[in-house]
Design a protein around this nucleic acid. Structure first.
Lengths: 341, 341
DNA sequence: TGCTATGATGTAACCGGTTACAGAAAACGG
DNA sequence: CCGTTTTCTGTAACCGGTTACATCATAGCA
């Protein structure tokens, strides 16, 4: 009946059970053995009062927040949902909370929120922090795990990312070997993006392996962005440079590339093969359906969360986790429709 | 050079400035006037010590968390990213933090985390809480705003959602008036989904307005899900019931419907018009591009966040915000390609 | 000049937990 | 049977802020 009374505290419980607050606390945390009769009385008192320990008070006393932060710049992007889904499944039922820390190119994060008072550790996604902020964070020693971005040299910060180079190699090999493409465009990602750098390395390796000369005119800025890549493709088409395939760097850029080709009346895949990277959720529904490389973004999130928890608990962590990627053949490369999908 | 020393506290600042902790606190919160010389000394001491007030201690003392929670079941779904993006922009620079509370059909939320100790208020998305948990939350009086779901009768909880019925009416009107469709399928959303109910009402209203008899055989379960809707469409096609258009309930179901039609060799939009709802990010890239209704999901997030903040601050709130939706004509209804896109 | 209103600051209790330390009782070993 | 260890429990300090109340100058006023 005392529904709307003030929530009860550990002292209320102690009083009702006829024990000290320390005893109640020990019961809560199993931090010391209690005699069975005492435990029973505490238990009784607790549920008679509907007692729930106050997390903030506990956080203050233990100097742990039981919260991990995810630092991201690109909320709303296609990476966001699967990544967070993975992170959540990584901390599931471990009594950890998830705090979203959104940064923007124009909006630096409040430095304090990166500090140890808000979270027990941070998951830092590529491009979410200015270099200075990242360095300061690393210096501070606050646990963090980087996602899709290597730590600065010397820093021993775990990294979780995906395998880019070998997968790209297989992707380009497929274009050359199966579809006999030899003039293959590459749309670079944003400056400084490591995924893009590795993909470019895979691209060049594949060309070299097939004795195809590297032509710098075939490498454009796609920015992992549909509009930038559409513009880049349009410009290239106007320049009437010859090409028979496009590796768009990522799926997002593939959207723009497909659009540009369509508007120019160039048929995909008959005239030009198009392949992407990431296997975003819309890849199967583009037209033609997009041949790409599956990036296990949810797993990246899950693994990163696990690494961070290990770090927080002082356990051993892997310095680097490279998750495997997988070629996904659909139609935009020129392969026929599968029987069903 | 004392870089790695323990972080300084308000008492350290007080000592260095030669004032009491209360004075420092007053400076921090502007909660009482300070003489300029005192203020100056506090300021000096603060940045000499790089002092940052400890948020958890502050939360404990003020019994506010400066955090709002978003309760969601469908992390990873297409709603998630834009919604959160909107929420973040709604709380931007207001010193509020965002906690993600993910529930799953199989995993009930820890009841405590819905309580007032973790957050100052909650944004509750449709279907994220069991009825009992929602009722308990509302009973508790903890501030909350519902998203895409009306409160139980009698409860005075603000609601933020979108206009469904009139938009659906316009959508179906378009099919009938422009494309002369009269046998229009409707794929219902999940049971209990209010959006779906309103869309169905709009659908029926449009039929009635054009004197088209309502045929219950044309209403199927699409579940707002690509697989469910694909299956439903396939079954319907096999039953060889006649139809010339499909309103898929949402865009997600449109994916499945398009797939089923394609596999059956039925041409869209020549043989059958297909229209969706939501205007998810992939809608323009389906083939043919999807005629749909734009749902301003990011705005829903922003508005809901704002309402919640008002509620938390004891200001007046709107009982219900219905955000306008807008018809987006593309090609899947049968309209020609726009000049550019 | 003496008395009160005002403004600035300090003291100490409080938010609600955890935990170091101490003490008492029970178990153990010789 | 007594000293030592072990097991359980209590006392009180502590985490790092906020704030009600008290205090003390100083300004204002008659």
């Amino acid at each position: 009946m005392n529904t709307s009374s003030a929530p009860s505290t550990i002292r209320d419980v102690a009083r009702l059970a006829g024990v000290s607050v320390a005893t109640v606390s020990r019961y809560l945390n199993q931090s010391a053995p209690l005699s069975e009769p005492t435990a029973e009385r505490v238990r009784r008192a607790m549920d008679q009062l509907h007692f729930t320990p106050h997390p903030v008070a506990r956080n203050l006393a233990t100097r742990r927040t039981h919260t991990i932060g995810v630092v991201l710049n690109d909320v709303g992007g296609d990476f966001f949902a699967p990544l967070l889904d993975g992170v959540l499944s990584g901390i599931e039922s471990l009594n950890y909370n998830l705090l979203i820390i959104a940064t923007r190119p124009d909006l630096r994060a409040n430095p304090a929120i990166l500090g140890p008072m808000y979270t027990d550790g941070l998951l830092v996604f590529w491009d979410s922090l200015e270099k200075a902020d990242l360095d300061a964070l690393i210096q501070s020693g606050h646990p963090c795990v980087l996602i899709h971005q290597s730590p600065p040299p010397g820093a021993k910060i775990p990294l979780v990312t995906i395998e880019n180079k070998a997968a790209t190699r297989r992707l380009i090999d497929h274009l050359v070997e199966v579809h006999h493409r030899r003039r293959i465009l590459f749309l670079r990602g944003p400056a400084g993006n490591e995924d893009s750098q590795w993909r470019e390395a895979g691209y060049r390796e594949a060309l070299a392996a097939h004795s195809i000369a590297y032509d710098p005119r075939l490498v454009l800025k796609g920015g992992f962005d549909r509009f930038i890549s559409q513009k880049a493709m349009q410009d290239l088409i106007e320049s009437s440079l010859d090409f028979d395939a496009v590796f768009t760097g990522d799926d997002e850029a593939a959207i723009g590339a497909l659009q540009a080709l369509k508007l120019a009346g160039i048929r995909v895949p008959e005239d030009v093969s198009v392949v992407g990277f990431d296997d975003q959720s819309l890849a199967p529904f583009l037209s033609p359906s997009l041949t790409t490389v599956h990036a296990p973004t949810d797993q990246v999130g899950r693994m990163a969360a696990r690494q961070l928890l290990r770090l927080i608990n002082g356990e051993e962590t892997e310095p680097e986790i490279l998750l495997p990627t997988e070629l996904v053949i659909r139609n935009s490369c020129g392969c026929p429709l599968p029987v069903s999908d």
